[in-house]
């Protein structure tokens, strides 16, 4: 359902790019929130956060570089790839969509998983990639999330997943729906061995992703202003035939409604995460011995 938002955002992105290209040199970027024109280098230095606190969407590589110790990320299972087992075709075949997404992102699918260090503490991480077919969850995303959870069950290091996803991948039909149950089931096993799981919800986290592993953190954190929902705003507006209030389904709204523990700015994310995993994980001491 909320893949709708992905398509809307895709439309938006085109205009973003257009406004970006208006300016020669491609050194500037326009903030979609405050409309200010920002010097790209400054923006990068500020972890892609505008002075108005708008958090730009970023690639998994950027996120890993920002939040984990330099060079500590070791990817797991990069070779798992999607297949078009339903021979699904809408305006384009799934096969072609996959090919294009792989070329664009240089990734096999919409998530990277692996181990990393967080202020010297070993952790298991998953980082979703919205630019790969709207971060949608098909069999590969579901399998990789399950495997990183199993890795955490094994090594007893905390798990941190950064979500950014429009929900289930329609092109895989019912199989994508089942990934919601599969990932949630694995989290139940993780809970059995008392390993903490921190879910960091980034813009956007909707549909089948929010209604499974994203909402199941022992701690749920969101980046400011992220859209977090089950049904996307457009679907709701169509259903209830009303405009939704400003800020509806944004991080701050969810915090108020009791769905999140905290909203954390990108600049403070690393320290917040490392403090939490250090405090929560009962296994670090044993492993250190």
């Amino acid at each position: 359902m909320s893949i709708l938002d992905w398509f809307n955002k895709n439309k938006l992105k085109k205009t973003d790019q257009a406004s970006r290209l208006d300016i020669p040199g491609d050194l500037w970027m326009k903030c979609p929130s405050c409309n200010d024109t920002l010097y790209l280098k400054d923006l990068e230095q500020n972890k892609k956060v505008c002075h108005c606190n708008y958090h730009f969407r970023i690639s998994p590589e950027e996120r890993i570089a920002m939040h984990f110790d330099n060079g500590s990320f070791e990817e797991i299972e990069p070779q798992i790839e999607a297949i078009d087992f339903l021979k699904f075709k809408d305006t384009q075949s799934y096969e072609i969509r996959l090919k294009k997404a792989k070329e664009k992102t240089k990734h096999a699918d919409a998530i990277l998983i692996g181990t990393a260090k967080l202020n010297h503490l070993p952790v298991n991480i998953g980082v979703m990639d919205f630019s790969f077919m709207g971060g949608s969850m098909g069999s590969v995303v579901g399998e990789k999330i399950t495997r990183i959870i199993e890795n955490a069950i094994d090594n007893k290091f905390p798990l941190i997943i950064f979500t950014s996803s429009g929900g289930a991948r329609m092109q895989e039909g019912i199989m994508s729906l089942m990934q919601m149950a599969k990932t949630s089931a694995a989290l139940q096993k993780l809970a059995d061995v008392h390993v903490p799981y921190i879910s960091v919800l980034c813009d956007p986290t909707t549909g089948g992703t929010s209604a499974s592993f994203a909402m199941l953190g022992d701690i749920n954190i969101a980046e400011p202003g992220a859209l977090i929902s089950f049904a996307g705003p457009r679907v709701i507006e169509q259903t209830i035939r009303q405009k939704l209030p400003k800020g509806f389904q944004r991080s701050e709204f969810l915090l108020e409604k009791g769905m999140l523990d905290m909203v954390v700015k990108r600049q403070n994310m690393k320290d917040t995460l490392s403090s939490l995993v250090k405090t929560l994980n009962p296994h670090y001491e044993r492993v250190a011995k």
Binding site: M180, Q188, K189, A191, A211, F213, A214, M215
Partner: peptide, 27 residues
């Protein structure tokens, strides 16, 4: 037809409610 895509359903945590069931039914 599906979980209700409405305002109150979102406010009261539709995503969390479904996710929790998926996890806890396994146990």
């Amino acid at each position: 037809p599906g979980a209700y895509p409405g305002k109150e359903a979102e406010e009261r945590g539709q995503a969390e409610a479904i996710a929790r069931n998926l996890k806890e039914m396994i146990g």
